[in-house]
């Protein structure tokens, strides 16, 4: 790697200058970055959320939802990309694969634990009131599991947005194109692009936090999500690899 410029007081000023003068290029890369992240988070939610909620509802498959999921979470993203490369070739597909591998276990474990750990008494009384199994799931278990489900999605989203940078290594198409190319864009470009990634990741966090507030029934808003089994400490503690 070539160190294009020293790190000094001007680096951050130059970073903003880069973001401003090259704004259309930065905007293109930002949109690509967002697209890549959104596709990966979308796929991960589609796979992991229904599976985790369903397994939690029937109180089975804790091995899959926790242990296998832990294994998935352990996989280094760059290694997944390099091993998947011969099969998928250069391009977005292999990056999306690595991002889904990163995000899905978090969402799966959290939605499973969230639904699985709803108080049996509560479920029992809902059943006693004549709710069908589907109604129990939709009206009792899911609302109570929401904080944990969203904690999983939120953490996954932060990791996915930060890790989508790795697309810069294979085939490009994200802010990683700038961050992995210091010889061309200099340290100020790298810092500028990193600030955008950091901003996007934080925005993803707050977006899902806001969604959570909107989706939580008013009566539950004061309830603390404290009933989490100690084996799986809440939210960010369930962190994965970026």
């Amino acid at each position: 790697m070539i160190v294009g410029e020293g790190f000094n007081a001007h680096t951050f000023a130059n970073a903003f200058r880069f973001l401003w003068y090259d704004r259309s290029f930065v905007a293109t890369k930002t949109l690509e970055h967002l697209e890549l992240s959104a596709i990966a988070i979308g796929i991960a939610i589609l796979i992991a959320l229904p599976l985790g909620v369903w397994l939690g509802h029937i109180h089975r498959g804790s091995f899959l939802a926790i242990n296998v999921s832990n294994l998935g979470r352990a996989l280094p993203s760059l290694a997944v990309i390099s091993v998947g490369l011969p099969a998928f070739g250069i391009g977005h597909t292999v990056v999306i694969l690595a991002l889904v591998v990163l995000a899905a276990p978090l969402i799966l474990t959290n939605s499973f634990v969230g639904v699985d750990s709803v108080e049996p008494d509560v479920v029992e009384s809902a059943r006693g009131m004549g709710l069908t199994p589907f109604q129990v799931l939709a009206r009792v278990e899911l609302p109570l599991a929401l904080p944990l489900v969203f904690a999983g999605i939120r953490t996954a989203a932060v990791y996915v947005v930060a890790t989508a940078t790795l697309a810069g290594v294979v085939g490009g198409g994200s802010l990683g194109d700038i961050i992995f190319n210091e010889p061309t864009y200099f340290l100020s470009g790298v810092v500028g692009a990193a600030m955008v990634v950091s901003l996007l990741a934080s925005s993803a966090f707050f977006l899902f936090a806001g969604l959570q507030r909107l989706l939580t029934p008013r009566g539950l808003r004061y309830v603390d999500a404290a009933h989490v089994p100690e084996e799986e400490p809440p939210s960010v503690l369930e962190a994965a690899a970026a």
Binding site: T165, I179, A201, S202
Partner: peptide, 19 residues
């Protein structure tokens, strides 16, 4: 430390190199 997590690791490493 949560803020640190939003920074792509590769950028943080590059930022540290001049130092």
């Amino acid at each position: 430390s949560a803020f640190l997590y939003t920074i792509p690791s590769i950028a943080l490493f590059q930022l540290l190199v001049p130092v």
